[in-house]
Design a protein around this nucleic acid. Sequence first.
DNA 1: ATTAGCACTCGTTAAAAGTGAGTGCTAACA
DNA 2: TGTTAGCACTCACTTTTAACGAGTGCTAAT
Lengths: 344, 344
Amino acid sequence: MLTDRQLLILRAIVDDYIKTAQPVGSRTLSKRDDVTFSSATIRNEMADLEEMGLIEKPHTSAGRIPSELGYRFYVDHLIRPESITPKEAQALKSLFAHSVNENDRLIRHTADLLSDLTHYTTLVLGPKEEGQRLHHLELIPLAEGRVVIVLVTETGHVEHKTLQLNQALSQEAASRLMERLNKTLRGTPLSALRSRLLEEIRRFRSEHSEQTVLLSKALDLVLTDQEERPFIYLGGKANMFDQPEFQDVAKLRPVLELIEQQEAVLDFLRPNLDNQILITIGSENNVDALKDCSVIRAHYSVDGVSIGTLALIGPKRMDYNRGINSIIHLLQAFQTEMHKNNSD
Amino acid sequence: MLTDRQLLILRAIVDDYIKTAQPVGSRTLSKRDDVTFSSATIRNEMADLEEMGLIEKPHTSAGRIPSELGYRFYVDHLIRPESITPKEAQALKSLFAHSVNENDRLIRHTADLLSDLTHYTTLVLGPKEEGQRLHHLELIPLAEGRVVIVLVTETGHVEHKTLQLNQALSQEAASRLMERLNKTLRGTPLSALRSRLLEEIRRFRSEHSEQTVLLSKALDLVLTDQEERPFIYLGGKANMFDQPEFQDVAKLRPVLELIEQQEAVLDFLRPNLDNQILITIGSENNVDALKDCSVIRAHYSVDGVSIGTLALIGPKRMDYNRGINSIIHLLQAFQTEMHKNNSD
DNA sequence: ATTAGCACTCGTTAAAAGTGAGTGCTAACA
DNA sequence: TGTTAGCACTCACTTTTAACGAGTGCTAAT
């Protein structure tokens, strides 16, 4: 167990290092107001903290920096959830002043706000579609057998896709088909849509054999969209450039490359959250490209249904306090807006 | 006017520098097979070329590198439009093996191909919507007065937007409205859609005053989408990391930041092309962030109507030859595919 | 007109020396 | 016994110096 003094020192080291990005020496610490003892004492304590693996030195004659374990301890035990200032709260409120009535745009807006607020990069995963329900299907024939299929969910999410048929589809046929499909399928969860559609096709086949082609194609569409990734948005990529640890292209590159890859982002954000907020530090991310990064992520849910993720990515030396606070408060405002949009 | 020998030397310098990114010295050049004269002679010629502003030296005792003027001359007069190898042509053909029947996806695919082919970053501007014609409008009421508007153009491009009305819109009202609007407005160029819609509203107002609200909102939609930027896609951003000139974050940053900003990209790609292919070198881009970059851009058109831009961005020391060839050939294949998709 | 020769320039690299922040240990102190 | 002052030591960082060598410009000979 750590003594109070050790806690004080550890916290001071982490705080200082987060602020300056420079190893923290005993002399520097001894000059702090909340430190009443000498640098020699600090050195002794530091030796102990180092033995415990909480801090380390880049080289013999440098100050100390937090180890991953140190950050972990700091995050778990030393963070004071310093509440947001009234001024910031006000600002936050006004950010959503005019509500954004499309989920996709709301998500983008939120991501931008979060990265502006924290000066880190933001990743936002949009709602998983599987959980949503079909509201409306629309078939719009174009010229030469091309057909646009538009799918609208109950939350107002819109997907569309263009099919190429080997024979033209008449306006009337499309209308008939659509009316019937909508009657049967409205309210179907997207996850079940594929099988329901299959059923419907089977029934149809007998009546209009010529339409079978279309339907199997349509099935394809749904099936593909099913596997398609949820909406991902990145905000504040440029903030990465400001971090001193990423001044070296070799360090910066893997991180930027990774977050540009939707697949990769999904893979590493997907692993889930039992708790509201999850913080992973350096190697805890289990992704080599992120070994020098920390990620704060929060799951958001609307009306009790968990649907997406809000994440903040920065250097290990990130301002966890500010990050956590920002994400919590923004999450709240965001969920309120989402609720407005999705309420039935 | 330049002598043949000077042309040979200039071309050799540019070629060499493009390949190695190192200043080219007279001794190096004298060892080339196509150079029959001595390094001293080369030095004399170099002095002349330098006086003409075509080459320059980073410092006294370095070799020469092309000046912007030098690149310009090279591009205008020295490029041998070395035709694509049969192997590459074959590859190119197979790249579009299964046709992509959605313009947006086709554009993305093309951008990725182009950047894979050249190892540079690709910017693609999608079709300007103003030129397109309305094919279909769809109003889909959701719960609580929210309405999704879907707009489909004749080329199969889909836009959608969600409106919040202060009173619910019934399914029937939506259908009636839609039918009428579609009857009147189909085929209207998007650029004229706004005013046409206005007319239609005026007529409508007398019949269904309660719908006026909706219509003015719908107008808003169209108006806003009108100003909305065309589709922009970036491919091969990571390629920037490989260029030796961008190993320094300070150099890399402005470029990456710029191309992430849709507005900025539009601003600097928009200025237009009378000719088929336009190359701008360094300061010719008139954008500070691109002062170390060159851009090769090609306008693409479908069925004689010019609709978008394909651009390649790399260091000034970019392989113009390969870039131009790749873009020309890809452009051709791309336009063919677009034609297939848009044919009426 | 071309080229060999040579002095000169200057960025680059390597080694040497100096600086200073920080450490660990020890001995004195409260 | 815990704390602190003192001191030798370490080591990254900076500056200095020297050596190197690729490349140049000029001149004189071919």
